[in-house]
């Protein structure tokens, strides 16, 4: 953290020096910077903000034939309908079980894997492994679910091996506990290779000088990893972790939908699959919109808290 703190201190000194300048003179001097942001701002306005008018749907009983203008207004009925379900809390809990486990593992495992992969000295071997672990990212959940259903069936590959080793056969996808493990780990397996790329890119910015001087100081590789490699990955990790909070209530519809069955509804039903069955299948778009809005608000709150905490404790602005 040494370099970073030093840099931060310097940054603040610079900021103080410019303190006297008015906002206006800064604008005059830095208008080019504004010009550089505006293309993005305009695109966001057109393609993200204009369609946001559709959020009104959450407060309507939207009918495609009537459109936004003529669909009846129902106020908060959609939310009452949703939160009024006996099952809603259970579904919310299931969602959090999946999404929190995936959240933590999808950060830790690519992080650790990137560090280990970085230690592989043969460049060709390293690149080959890197390419192979990135393959599963390109499988759709429909395909992957088909393979998993096959492999994890009671007569499937995994159970056959387990039976040979004298273990009990397990109905992985028909038992709530095993189902959850399957969902969490298959998700991590599918995406860790792809997520690793970001950390590998971050590692390239670490100056070899730091390792050299540590070597001279007599630090072994483990200590170098602990004091140089890991700290240099922390900023990007914090950024990724914060941004991922925005989608915390998205526990991956495609995955659960393709894997689950009536046996495990109780432990497997997430908000999105639940809403799909009670709402979207019967054409209740407004319910879907209300759920989306609810999830967005939670995401906004989480991101804001995380942003504040990171700033308070590390004096680092994530964005």
């Amino acid at each position: 953290m040494n370099t970073r703190m030093w840099r931060n201190r310097k940054l603040h000194a610079g900021a103080r020096r410019r303190n006297r300048e008015t906002a206006l003179s800064s604008l005059r001097r830095n208008w080019v910077l504004h010009l550089m942001v505006w293309p993005a701002v305009i695109l966001f306005f057109i393609f993200s903000y204009l369609p946001m008018a559709g959020i009104v749907m959450a407060f309507q009983n939207f009918k495609p034939g009537l459109g936004f203008l003529n669909s009846p207004w129902v106020g908060l009925d959609q939310f009452r309908f949703l939160f009024g379900y006996d099952n809603f809390l259970k579904v919310l809990r299931n969602t959090l079980v999946f999404s929190l486990s995936k959240y933590v593992l999808n950060i830790l495992i690519p992080f650790g894997f990137a560090i280990l992969l970085n230690e592989v000295r043969n460049r060709r071997y390293k690149r080959t492994v890197q390419t192979i672990v990135y393959l599963p990212y390109f499988l759709s959940w429909v395909t992957l679910a088909g393979i998993l259903l096959d492999m994890l069936s009671t007569q499937g590959l995994v159970n056959t091996v387990m039976a040979r080793l004298g273990m009990e056969r397990i109905m992985f996808l028909g038992d709530g506990f095993w189902f959850r493990l399957t969902v969490i780990f298959s998700d991590v397996w599918k995406s860790f290779g792809f997520n690793t790329i970001l950390y590998l890119a971050a590692l390239t910015t670490v100056s070899p000088d730091l390792y050299e001087s540590a070597e001279i100081d007599g630090a072994n590789r483990f200590r170098q990893t602990l004091h140089i490699t890991i700290p240099s990955l922390v900023p990007i990790t914090v950024v990724v972790a914060t941004l991922a909070l925005g989608g915390l209530l998205n526990a991956n519809f495609d995955q659960v939908f393709n894997l689950y069955n009536p046996m495990v509804y109780e432990k497997a039903d997430i908000i999105d699959t639940f809403v799909y069955r009670i709402g979207l299948l019967s054409g209740k778009y407004s319910l879907g919109a209300a759920v989306g809005l609810f999830k967005s608000f939670i995401g906004l709150i989480l991101i804001t808290i995380s942003y504040r905490l990171a700033y308070r404790f590390t004096n680092y602005r994530i964005f």
Partner: peptide, 21 residues
């Protein structure tokens, strides 16, 4: 039916499958 059927049917699927086991 529009309001409630999906939940009723879900209960049916759940009960049928679980009775099997």
């Amino acid at each position: 039916m529009t309001e409630k059927w999906s939940l009723l049917f879900q209960a049916e699927l759940e009960t049928y499958t679980k009775m099997l086991y």
